[in-house]
Amino acid sequence: MERILVTGANGQLGSELGVLSTSYPQYKWVFADRIMISLHNLNLLKIQLNDIKPTVVFNCGAYTAVDKAEVEKELAYTVNHSAVEVIAKYCFENKVKLIHISTDYVFDGSSSIALNEDALTNPINVYGKSKTTGELACLKENPDSIIIRTSWVYSKFGNNFVKTMQRLMQEKESINVVNDQIGSPTYAADLAKAMIDILNSQKWIPGIYNYSNEGEISWYEFALAIKEQGGYSCKVNGIPSASYPTPAKRPEFSLLDKKKIKTIYNIAVPDYKESLKKMFV
């Protein structure tokens, strides 16, 4: 029986895998929080991996506070680079399958067409840089890894854009949302299913894959879709990023091309509006 270790078990993706896991009793699931798997303490991490002895690792744990990372650089790099290096090395040495989750923030946002897996990385903030070096370390230590880049993740669990919009649209008469950052959201439950589908496929083709929901939209357009779905009366105003400065720069365009994962693994990629509906059920 495969023994699947899920790091970041209390995060959005880890929580959605927890929900789905009950439908896959053929696997032994180990859901690890920050104490059970210490991504910030590398010596302890090595001991914990040896104790758990997984045959599959879904590495969903990460430092994801994009703005705080500008100040907490060391912690961001420890979790997003050094811990990934340790996990990848362990997986390679013990013939453990590894699916590692990465991000669209590895790109600088200068593209005008959907980015495929071979597009050049050039991160513009500390979070993106730490995730990029994590990818490189993962592939160096374990060339058999699968890395999935995703974007704009939301879920019924944790904190995310959709939940923030739901709250603000019920509290305020009007809100401002940036309209010049383009990409596509990812419903974490869809990504969780895609990860399990890859494992179930009985074929393992290492490398980088992209996964987000279908659609090419701005955060402003995403907010309008949330407003429509929730039936809120709040006015939504589109504003340029320059009017909403943040400590970390965001890529202006980070739409991911999903052809590879659809072709190789026959993964279904729902439209973002279809997935957003599930969030409101």
Rank of each mutant, 00 (worst) to 15 (best):
M1A: 11
R3N: 04
A9M: 03
N10H: 11
G11Y: 10
G11V: 12
S15T: 14
V19M: 13
Y27R: 00
W29T: 03
M36F: 02
I37E: 08
L49M: 12
F58E: 02
T64Q: 07
D67M: 04
V71S: 12
K73G: 01
E74Y: 14
A83H: 06
A83L: 03
V84Q: 07
V86I: 15
A88I: 04
F92A: 15
N94T: 12
S110C: 10
E117P: 02
V126Y: 01
G128A: 13
K129W: 10
K129D: 15
S130R: 13
T132F: 15
T133G: 04
E135I: 07
A137P: 00
N142Y: 08
P143N: 06
D144Y: 03
D144A: 08
I146L: 09
S155E: 06
F161R: 10
T164C: 10
E173S: 11
V177G: 08
D180T: 07
G183S: 14
A188Y: 00
L191I: 07
M195K: 02
L199D: 04
P206G: 11
S212L: 02
N213W: 04
N213E: 05
E216T: 10
E216R: 13
W219A: 08
A223W: 12
G230F: 09
G231F: 06
S241D: 02
P245A: 07
P247R: 08
R250F: 04
P251A: 03
S254H: 02
K260G: 03
T263R: 15
I264K: 11
I267M: 05
V269A: 09
D271A: 09
